[in-house]
Write a protein that binds this DNA or RNA. Structure first.
Lengths: 219, 219
DNA sequence: ACTCCGACTGATCGACCGGTCAGGATGTGG
DNA sequence: CCACATCCTGACCGGTCGATCAGTCGGAGT
């Protein structure tokens, strides 16, 4: 038996192993852990059922390997936000756009993580999922606090509420695409860039008239 | 055989049927459709396994009955928003607070609906779930457009983005309670009322200087 | 007393589940 | 040539799944 370790996932050893990982990722994201059988995965990956066990030991291990992969991917995303070449405002906008684009570009990762977050059992896997979300949240919160310290936010604005609003708006835009498309016939922003622009207006509406930092939310 | 109809769910006929419905609601919300067996439900409801089939026909029917129940519950919630006795601003604040409180008060309904929304299969059940969310969204969107027409929102504010921000922020507050509690030691708003107040500040920050009809949520 | 009906249960079914095992195919080092 | 390791498969196992069925029980109607 040559199964992968459970604590750390390495690269897939063969093409078949890679196909198994990819197929299981999609299926787990769509139907959840219990909704997918090893048969389904093997069939989608065009391998024998026993081969799945050969590479990943058991079902839980395969699921964990998927979570580990997506977690790594999402963590590396956060590194982009740390460069100080751009203004705080720009970094917030870039983070929001990057976050939204990545959700739209790889929905399976989102659903894989979301399914883990809504599980009441506090397993180690759920902890890691929470950790990723928590890091992302803290990062954005820190940027917003910085923005407020710079005087670019009204004093009565609560950075935490604003953080949750941005992250939540992104998720809702991602999740409700189908619904939005139906009622967006009158020219509402359905493109991510336009949506992020609208979202940034909510934070500091003085973005059109050329960076006027002291012009706050009037009226 | 005396199973309920599939298209419309009536009240549970016996105490046992009521217990089955309640037990299955919790289990389905926590573990999802495939994660729960009839055995689990029967055991939690303290009835025989065959009795579950007697009352609900099959597993899918039982699940559908749960969805129908929660959908009805959420739809009736929206009725509150239609009374014109309060100002538009108040109705938005009341809607947001009511929405958040209901999520916090009955998490199982939220998870039951969420699990349905993240299913890629476009079943009739998913349609109804989408319909409920869509109605709720349209309602809030309409109120915000009204608010903007009244001149209480900046002209560059996009009502749709604001709608998604409010709904999304509520959901994030609900979902990330555990994470928020950890980093909320420095006096951040962890109570729903305070959070909604902060959220309303984001919409119309001119709430402090004493408008006439906004006294309800400002302590 | 007799019938009928809905509530309810234990036993049981075939299907499918996750997982195992013996062994074939292929390559690699001695 | 042999020995060995890895990749991979078909056949198989015990257990659990959703669902069925025969039948018991108790109350209402006649």
């Amino acid at each position: 038996m040559q199964q992968q370790s459970s604590t750390q996932s390495a690269e897939p050893r063969t093409e078949a192993a890679r196909r198994i990982l990819e197929a299981s990722k999609i299926l787990f994201a769509e139907r959840g852990y219990d909704g997918v059988s090893i048969r389904d995965i093997a069939e989608k990956a065009r391998v024998s059922k026993a081969n799945v066990f050969h590479h990943f030991g058991n079902k839980a291990n395969l699921y964990e390997a998927n979570l580990h992969d997506t977690a790594e991917k999402l963590i590396t995303k956060l590194e982009v936000l740390r460069d100080t070449r751009h203004s705080v405002r720009d970094r917030i906008a870039r983070f929001a756009l990057l976050d939204l684009q990545e959700q739209l570009g790889d929905p399976h990762c989102v659903y894989l993580f979301l399914r883990q977050l809504i599980t009441p059992q506090r397993t180690a896997q759920r902890r890691t999922a929470e950790q990723v979300v928590s890091d992302s949240l803290k990062n954005l919160l820190h940027l917003l606090e910085q923005l407020k310290a710079d005087g670019e936010l009204p004093t009565e604005t609560d950075p935490l509420a604003l953080t949750l609003a941005i992250i939540g708006a992104n998720f809702m835009f991602f999740q409700l695409q189908g619904i939005l498309a139906e009622l967006g016939q009158d020219g509402n922003p359905v493109e991510p860039e336009a949506f992020i622009r609208s979202l940034m207006h909510l934070i500091t509406p003085a973005v059109d008239n050329g960076h006027d930092a002291q012009r706050h939310l009037t009226r």
